[in-house]
Design a protein around this nucleic acid. Structure first.
Lengths: 229, 229
DNA sequence: AATATAGTGTGTATTTTTTACACTAAGTAA
DNA sequence: TTACTTAGTGTAAAAAATACACACTATATT
């Protein structure tokens, strides 16, 4: 985030690529800037790292301030530091991504002051982004594509209880390709990190699917072993 | 690198984990500090990012200043920013790793002023490191372990012409486990990124092995396809 | 010249994993 | 009761991974 520029030689900030899933589409959170440079442009939410916080703490704080969310899986993935990436001075930024389940119960808190508004926009139809934020986003998407093949991050995008079809949908969206239903189920179940519940989907006008839950305990036991899509 | 501390709110530096291979062992480059804090301790080489250089440029410059080497594959892998990682102030550091072939033709340039001396030390027997440098190193090793399975970085550790046995040796050292000779050869050859030369190893007192070269052209064509160990 | 030594280089059978592919079952809505 | 929509399941074929042992060749030694 670059809207505040104290007169320093260099500024260190964090920008977040927040991937959200509403059950249908993958979206990211963008803000519409209210200040120069790039006034009226869409940009990734971010902020400056405080003097007494660690990087992860800072990222959590920023996420909280922008969305009201806590306890979300976040991870740094790349530092961007081109000397000219910000027109007004040297700003090195560390990019984090987070995966968030949208809709349903909690509504996201409105975004703070420095932006006109914030919006979840589908990644299939993004506007031009301020600064080098397109690059930051691109690298973030690339990252989660690789990551979702080896780590159980897909669950972060889903409600606690979900169906296998929903899970497959997430994988297909992130990876950008169709997967075979039977093979997907065979594989994901074989990892042994899902707990089948005694519950069924509700409110659908067709046969209700069985609900599953991600089993952190079992996953912890697997640690070290690679899972792979 | 933290030996210079201008009176700023925060400093942004780069630290390098330089992995070297001399044909026998994996080593990393360490310097012995000549200043407080951590005077006389071993530390990773690093330096402060200049105002007009990109992060990658800065890393290349630092590598060059410390070793005289150019054109080495380097990559950033993690930012460390605990507010107390440096006893004298806030220093956020970005870690890079590089892979370097040791010995043979070029001798490394002596290290610059701020260290008593620099040395390549085998990773199997490292001293206590200054600051959080052990953590930085650990994460770097982890990184190249994962990376070597999917990217052709092993070649950076070897001379231009190498034998398959040498290549296997590098994989075994990095991954920390023995590999089967026949299976290794089958697999690595099947990737199609090696060019078999009409040349044999020289100066050995046993049957000389065929030399190979990494074929960047062929590798470029593969791009997008995953290779995997 | 014969022999010892040390690393090179190769093939196959078995197991495991991946892929391709289509129908019946269950629940809801009309 | 029928039509509709998604859930849920198995198998055969292909590909990839693994386990495994011996003959070859260049040099050094006697």
């Amino acid at each position: 985030m670059e809207q505040i520029l104290p007169h320093l030689d260099s500024v260190f900030s964090i920008d977040c690529v927040l991937f959200g899933f509403d059950g249908k589409e993958l979206k990211i959170l963008l803000i519409e800037r209210n200040e120069e440079p790039f006034k009226d442009w869409w940009a990734l939410p971010g902020n400056i790292v405080g003097p007494d916080e660690s990087l992860d703490q800072s990222a959590s704080r920023i996420l909280y301030e922008l969305t009201g969310l806590r306890g979300i899986f976040m991870e740094q993935y790349y530092a961007f530091g081109d000397p000219h990436r910000h027109p007004q001075g040297r700003v090195i930024t560390l990019a984090y991504y987070a995966l968030i389940r949208l809709g349903g119960d909690k509504e996201l808190r409105p975004i703070s002051t420095y932006a006109k508004r914030a919006n979840w926009l589908p990644i299939t139809d993004l506007p031009k982004l301020a600064f080098d934020h397109q690059k930051i986003y691109d690298k973030g998407l690339e990252k989660i594509k690789r990551r979702i093949k080896h780590q159980p991050i897909a669950f972060e995008l889903l409600p606690e209880k979900f169906t296998l079809t929903q899970l497959q949908h997430v994988y297909e969206l992130v990876l950008g390709k169709k997967l075979d239903k039977r093979n997907f189920r065979k594989k994901i179940v074989s990892f042994g990190v899902l707990k089948e519940l005694d519950e069924k989907q509700k409110g659908v006008s067709y046969r209700a699917a069985t609900l599953y839950r991600f089993d952190k305990r079992k996953y912890a036991k697997l640690f070290g072993k690679e899972i792979s899509f």
